[in-house]
């Protein structure tokens, strides 16, 4: 079985919002993990992991030249900053919702990196 690591060990992220859409960018610390994250961080995976929350369209865009990803989760913020009754109506904490996912690495990527 391939080794799995929590995404927060190999990438950092920032959450923003526009209206009722949550926008989270994900940046691998090491570009060698880009391909593994691209494989593991998919719209289907996010929808399956957080079905109660992510009911709208989800798009994961890859930016190989910059070495990062942008996740666009539409209609995900319970109405957004204006309408949501939630504590975190901007979804500022959502970067860590994404970072808690597990990512499957290739065997050789685990050794020697303290993971």
């Amino acid at each position: 079985m391939s080794p799995r690591v929590p995404l927060y060990r190999i990438a950092h992220a920032r959450a923003g919002d526009k209206g009722n859409d949550s926008l989270v960018s994900v940046w691998p610390y090491d570009r060698r993990h880009f391909a593994a994250i691209a494989r593991g961080l998919t719209a289907e995976r996010l929808r399956a992991t957080y079905p109660a929350l992510l009911r709208g369209p989800i798009e994961v865009k890859a930016f190989p030249r910059l070495g990062g990803f942008l996740i666009v989760m539409r209609d995900a913020l319970e109405g957004g900053v204006n309408a949501s009754l939630g504590l975190d109506s901007h979804g500022k904490s959502w970067s860590y919702l994404i970072l808690r996912l597990d990512i499957e690495l290739d065997d050789h990527q685990l050794s020697g990196q303290g993971l």
Binding site: H12, A13, R14, G16, D17, K18, D21, L23, S25, W27, K61, F63, R65, L66, G67, G68, L70, V72
Partner: peptide
């Protein structure tokens, strides 16, 4: 890293960042 995180902050489409001045493409920055 601080620049990268801010580059995509609150942007729906980094290749077409819409505004009144110009449609900017940040994807090749």
């Amino acid at each position: 890293r601080t620049v990268l995180e801010q580059l995509f902050y609150e942007v729906h489409d980094p290749a077409h960042y819409l505004g009144p001045d110009v449609t900017a493409d940040f994807s090749q920055v």
